[in-house]
Computed example of a mutant assay.
Amino acid sequence: MDELLDILDANGNFTGSTAIKSLAHRDGLFHATVHIWFYTADGQVLLQQRGKDKNTHPLLWDVSVAGHVSAGEQIETAALREIEEEIGLSVGLHDLQKTGVFKSIQKHDNGSIDCEFHHTFLCELFAPFKKLRPQASEVEELALISLDDFSTDVLDGQIPERYVPHASDYYRAVLSKIRECLT
């Protein structure tokens, strides 16, 4: 969907301008996204396999839930909306634990440039895995992976090609916060 986004400057400040998502990606305009990492009390992380028809990173494993923040939308509202849309789960604002904001610039083979500020949250997964309903147009599959296995995969220097290539510092920060929540 080609939604309207608030455009940010290189420091994450609102510019007062808006643009449709396709234009923001074509021209490398900064904008806000939400990332929500779900984890279980027994040390697993929920991953989504991106849909096969996605413009970038199709079929690669990624953050539990992610999406763009629409123009004028509050960050937390976008996070709750994306959770409902992508995995069919309703959670409360009190369930989200803000982890940080991470600047990300990714240039893709198709010519698009993602210049984003990922507003990142953690959320403990209380619902049974079988109750999750992946959004067919966005998510190919969902999987739970042990925190230890996921850490080994993404923190051992080279991120395997089956994962979206987020920066190692990003993965390290998220995994560290999940470990803090589990202790």
Rank of each mutant, 00 (worst) to 15 (best):
F102V: 02
K103F: 03
F126S: 15
F126Y: 14
L80G: 02
L122Y: 02
F126P: 08
S112N: 12
F126H: 15
A78Q: 05
L125H: 03
R81H: 10
F117A: 04
R50S: 06
W37N: 11
E84I: 07
Q74H: 12
V45Y: 06
F117P: 01
S104C: 04
G67Q: 03
Q106S: 06
V69G: 03
I75N: 08
F129A: 12
H94Q: 15
F117Y: 09
S112F: 13
L132T: 02
F38M: 09
V69R: 04
T40W: 13
Y39V: 14
L125D: 11
L46R: 06
I83C: 03
G51E: 04
L132Y: 10
I75A: 09
D109A: 14
L122A: 09
H119R: 06
L80D: 01
T120Q: 04
I87F: 00
D109L: 13
L80W: 03
W61A: 06
E84H: 12
I83R: 04
E138R: 12
R81D: 03
G92N: 13
G43K: 10
V91I: 14
H118L: 10
I87S: 00
I83W: 02
D62P: 03
K54S: 15
L47P: 01
P128W: 11
W37H: 13
D62A: 07
T99C: 15
V69Q: 05
A136D: 10
V45T: 11
P128I: 12
R81W: 08
V91D: 02
R50C: 03
A66G: 15
T56N: 11
Y39F: 15
A127S: 15
V63N: 04
L132A: 01
E85G: 05
V69F: 00
L89Q: 02
I105S: 00
H119T: 06
L46Y: 00
K98F: 15
I36V: 11
D114Q: 07
E86K: 05
A127L: 07
A78N: 05
V101C: 12
Q106G: 01
I36P: 02
F102M: 05
E73R: 09
W37M: 11
A66P: 02
T56R: 07
L59K: 07
Q48N: 04
K131C: 15
S137E: 15
T120W: 02
L89N: 01
K107G: 01
E73M: 08
H68W: 06
Q74M: 12
K103R: 08
E86R: 03
K98G: 08
F121K: 04
E82D: 02
L89P: 00
I75Y: 05
Y39E: 09
T40Y: 13
Q97W: 09
G72A: 08
L47F: 08
K107E: 02
I36R: 05
E138M: 11
W37Q: 14
K98E: 14
H118V: 08
G51C: 03
E84A: 12
R133G: 11
H108K: 02
T40S: 14
L46F: 00
